[in-house]
Amino acid sequence: MGRRFLDRFLRPVLMRLVQPLLVALIVGALGFALMAVLPGDQAFRLAAARYGPDMGDAAAAALVRQELGLDRPWAVQFLDWVGRLVRLDLGHSLVTGEPVLQELTMQLGYTLALAGVALPLSALLGLPLGLLAGLQPGGPVDRIMLGLSVLLRAVPAYALGLCLVTVFSIHFGWLPPAGFEGWREFVLPALTLALGLAALSARVARDSVAVVAASPFMAFARWKGLPERAVVLRHGLRNAAIPVIALLGLQLVGLVEGLVIVESLFSWPGIGHALVHAIFARDVPVVQGTALALGLIFVLVNALVDLACALIDPRRARAET
C-alpha cells in the first residue's frame, strides 16, 4: 500500500513540486532579463507612475534612481534579487513602495474571488447542458448546445463584456459596470469569464457523457433494471467526470488570460490588472511577483487535477482494492 501510494500519488505531486521551482527561476530570470533590455529608462517610467505625468520629469527620475539604486549594474541587481528570493522576500513595489508580497496577497484575493465565482458559474451553466446533450447525441438539445457553444466561443471576451454591460448596466441599470465592493460588482465580470468557459465545458461534458452513455456497462446497468436516474447518477456521471475535471485544469489557462482582459475591462484590482500596470510602469519586482504567482497557481491546480482524477477514477479505485 505504502509503496503504491507513493508511486501513484506522491511522485506526481513531488514532480509538480520541482516544477514550480524551475518555473520560479525561469519566470524571474526572464522577467529580469527582459526588463533589463527593455527600451526606455526605468527611473523615468517609475517617476511617471509615482508622480503622474505632470510631475514626472527628469528631477523626479533622478530622485527615484538615487533612492532605489537603479544605477547599480544589472548583474548586481539580479544577484540581489536571487538572494532575497531565497529568503522568500519578493521586495518592494518600485511604484508604491509597499512590499510586493502584501500587494500580491490583496490582488490575489480579488482575482481568486472573481475566479471562485466564475468557475462554479461556468460549471453551472455548461455542465447540465452538456450532460443533457450528451445523453442524446444528435438530438435537438445537442444540436442547439453545439451551435450555442460554437457561437459563444467565437465572441471576443471584450465584446462579450461590452455586450453584458450594455444590457445590464446601460439598458436596465441593474448592475454597475465597474467597482469591486459588493456582490453586484461581481456579476458582470464573473459572467463574462464564465460564459466563455461554459461554452468549452459544455462541449467536453457532452462528448464524454456521450462516450460513456454508449458504453456497454451503462447498457448493463440498465439491463440490471436500475432506474434511468440512478444509472446516470451512479455510473454515467462518475465516468464522465474525469475528462471534465481534467478540463478544469485546462480552463485555468483560459481563465488566466481571460482575467487580464476582464480585469482591465471592469477595472478589477486583481493580479492581471496589476501585471499590465507593472509592465507599463516597469515595476520589475511586481512583474516578477505576479508572474511567479501565476506560474505557481497554474502548477498547483494541475497537481490537484491529477490527484482528483486519480481519486475519482473507478477503474483505478478497483485496482487498488
Binding site: 516544477q19 514550480p20 518555473v23 525561469i26 519566470v27 526572464l30 522577467g31 527582459l34 489557462v253 488566466v256 488570460e257 487580464v260 501585471l275 499590465v276 509592465i279 512583474v287 508572474a291 501565476l294 506560474g295 497554474f298 502548477v299
Partner: peptide, 11 residues
C-alpha cells in the same frame, strides 16, 4: 507554465 499572455505582454 508561463501564461502565454505574459510573454506577449513583456514583448
Amino acid at each position: 507554465a508561463l501564461p502565454g499572455l505574459l510573454l506577449v505582454l513583456l514583448l
